[in-house]
Design a protein around this nucleic acid. Sequence first.
DNA 1: GTATCTGCAAAACTTTTGCTTATTT
DNA 2: AAATAAGCAAAAGTTTTGCAGATAC
Lengths: 125, 125
Amino acid sequence: MRFTRERAEILRGSCSAGGHFVVEALAKRVGVSVATVYRNLPLMVEAGIIRRTVDTPDGRGAYEHVWGREHHDHLVCVRCGEVVEFHFTALEVLQEHVAQEHGFALMDHRMELLGLCPRCQEEET
Amino acid sequence: MRFTRERAEILRGSCSAGGHFVVEALAKRVGVSVATVYRNLPLMVEAGIIRRTVDTPDGRGAYEHVWGREHHDHLVCVRCGEVVEFHFTALEVLQEHVAQEHGFALMDHRMELLGLCPRCQEEET
DNA sequence: GTATCTGCAAAACTTTTGCTTATTT
DNA sequence: AAATAAGCAAAAGTTTTGCAGATAC
């Protein structure tokens, strides 16, 4: 496993822009081909540096950089698309509880809360 | 908004097979073109009859029928893909709490717990 | 009868892959 | 030097769309 310029760029690029990205934009931003990004993403996901999120309403894969960051989940505004990160330990404790109740060994989770952000609620008049 | 044979088939078909489906399979099963399924899904999602889930590890859109069913979320086995539905009110209460804390008007959520199902844990020897 | 819907085939996109050239070690 | 990685371009998939013919109302 080599440490190439492209991999360095992908890592660096995935940190900026709030850590959230879609493949095409990232590739363009850091000047690496999409093929290379697509080939490397699974490795980085495997390595725990990046994880796949579910943020895009359209079908595109969205990812985020999680290297050295606290785990968090997302609040997403269904109107304007704003994404707010949150972390709430009690939720995770209950998730663990549910998993155990069903005999599952919990490894990860994905959670998105969908609603209207404060700004869009006002415009909702 | 007309009630066509195709729409009836899509609704009927979305109930069977455990209520979970991907578009191509549903279309084939009920004998309706994929184009028609794709055109109708958004309407049915809007109507609250169907919702988009996140079950497929590959990029395909997965859906489930939720008409008259209790709300639930999913435990997914990362090895064999088994899906178990669960509902745990306390989790939802906390989600509402988190949303309010950020000023969001919560409308929906998606949650998947990923882990190893009991059977795959045994084989994990 | 007319407005709405369906199916087909083409188009638009996203993601994967084969192969050649470049680069890391 | 050898083995791995990148880029390009083609391929494989999924989802969307234009249009002609069919259908519900």
